[in-house]
Each structure stands twice: as C-alpha cells, then as structure tokens.
Deep mutational scan, measured.
Amino acid sequence: KTELCRTFSESGRCRYGAKCQFAHG
C-alpha cells in the first residue's frame, strides 16, 4: 500500500476499512 486513500484522508473513515487497497496512514 503506497498510495494514500483519499476517502480516509478527507473524511477519516473508509467503508473498505482494512480491506481498502489504499493506505490509511
């Protein structure tokens, strides 16, 4: 995971959680 998850960085939450293909910091 190298690319940051935009949804997580903007809203602080992501519906994919740990399964998200993007990094959550």
Rank of each mutant, 00 (worst) to 15 (best):
E3W: 00
R13C: 14
C14A: 03
L4D: 11
L4R: 06
R15D: 14
A23R: 12
S11I: 07
A23F: 10
E3L: 04
C14H: 04
L4Q: 05
C14Q: 05
S9K: 08
S11F: 13
G17Q: 06
L4M: 14
G25D: 14
F8W: 10
E10C: 00
Y16A: 12
A23W: 06
F8K: 15
R6D: 13
F22M: 12
T2L: 06
H24R: 01
T7Y: 11
R15Y: 14
C5D: 09
F8P: 04
R15H: 14
A18L: 03
R6G: 09
T7I: 10
C14K: 06
F8L: 08
A23G: 08
T7P: 01
C20Q: 01
A18V: 05
E10W: 00
G17N: 00
A23N: 08
K1M: 10
T7W: 06
A18S: 04
K1Y: 09
F22D: 12
A18R: 03
R13Y: 14
S9C: 04
K19A: 04
T7H: 07
Q21L: 06
E3C: 10
F8R: 09
C20D: 03
G25Q: 05
G12W: 00
F8G: 12
K1V: 05
K1E: 14
H24N: 03
C14L: 00
C14I: 03
C14M: 06
S11R: 09
C5R: 03
C5G: 07
S9Q: 02
L4G: 06
C20H: 01
A23M: 11
Q21K: 11
F22L: 10
C14W: 00
C5K: 06
G17H: 06
T2E: 07
H24T: 00
F22I: 01
H24V: 02
C14R: 02
C5E: 09
S9V: 03
E3H: 12
T2A: 10
R6Q: 11
K1L: 02
H24I: 02
A18D: 15
A18G: 09
A18I: 06
A23S: 14
H24D: 06
R13P: 04
G17Y: 00
Y16M: 13
K19H: 10
C5N: 07
E3A: 04
Q21W: 02
G12A: 06
A18F: 01
C20S: 04
F22R: 07
S9P: 05
F22S: 11
L4C: 10
C5W: 00
E10R: 08
C5H: 04
F8V: 04
S9T: 11
Y16V: 10
L4W: 03
T2Y: 10
G25L: 09
G25S: 10
H24G: 03
G25K: 03
R15Q: 14
K19N: 15
E3N: 09
C5M: 02
A23H: 10
E10D: 08
S11Q: 15
C20P: 14
G25Y: 10
T2N: 14
K19R: 10
C5T: 07
H24C: 07
R15K: 12
Q21Y: 06
T2P: 01
C14N: 02
E10N: 08
T7L: 05
S11N: 13
G12S: 05
C5Y: 01
L4S: 07
R13D: 15
E3S: 06
G25M: 08
C14E: 07
F8H: 15
G17L: 00
S11C: 07
L4F: 11
G17M: 00
R6E: 15
G12Q: 08
Q21T: 04
G25F: 07
R15S: 12
R15W: 07
R6I: 09
S9F: 08
S11M: 14
C5S: 05
T2W: 00
C20F: 00
G12N: 00
S9L: 08
T7Q: 11
K1P: 00
C14D: 07
E10A: 13
R15F: 13
R6P: 13
S9M: 13
Q21E: 13
E10H: 01
C14T: 07
H24S: 02
E10P: 04
T2V: 10
A23E: 13
C5Q: 11
K1S: 05
T7E: 15
R15L: 12
K19T: 15
E3V: 03
G25H: 07
R6L: 07
C5L: 03
T2C: 02
G17A: 01
G25E: 13
Y16F: 07
C20M: 01
C14V: 03
L4V: 12
E10Y: 01
C14F: 01
R13Q: 15
R15V: 05
G25C: 06
S9R: 04
Q21I: 12
F22G: 13
Y16R: 06
F22P: 07
S11G: 13
T2F: 11
K1R: 02
S9A: 06
C20E: 04
S11A: 07
R6F: 05
C5V: 01
G17R: 00
F22E: 12
L4K: 03
G17W: 01
G25I: 07
C20R: 02
C5P: 03
T2H: 08
E10K: 08
G12T: 04
R13K: 15
G17K: 01
R6V: 08
Y16L: 10
R13E: 15
Y16T: 02
F8I: 03
Q21V: 03
R15P: 15
E3G: 05
